[in-house]
Amino acid sequence: MTPGDTRPDPRPPAIGPEQVRHVARLARLRLSDEELARFTGQLAAVLDYAAELAELDVEGLEPMAHPLPLRNVLRSDEPRPPLRRDEVLEQAPAVEDGCFCVPRILSGEG
């Protein structure tokens, strides 16, 4: 998948109910109107607080991908024992033929 142009602006505008509804849908959360209003207010406050960072002068500084001063943390390509399958499948909601069995996908959605 090639990247689209969906990266958020580093300084997002104040968040509104529509954006909160969108984000909630992406996270598969169903919000009541009351919750939507409450979380929109809370999220706006969090974003306002984070927006204080925008006041810092970062001219000439390289963007950081990670706060740790580390690069190239690697392991050798050596196999390690896997989990036992019966133990793995104990986590499954349903099991069939040694597989995790889940409800049908992409059928009549939307």
Partner: peptide, 24 residues
Amino acid sequence: PMRSKEEAEDYRYFPEPDLVPLEP
């Protein structure tokens, strides 16, 4: 056509916090 929801294309990419940058 593959049926998918409109929002399915929004992958909300963000840096993986558990991996550090790779710089050979």
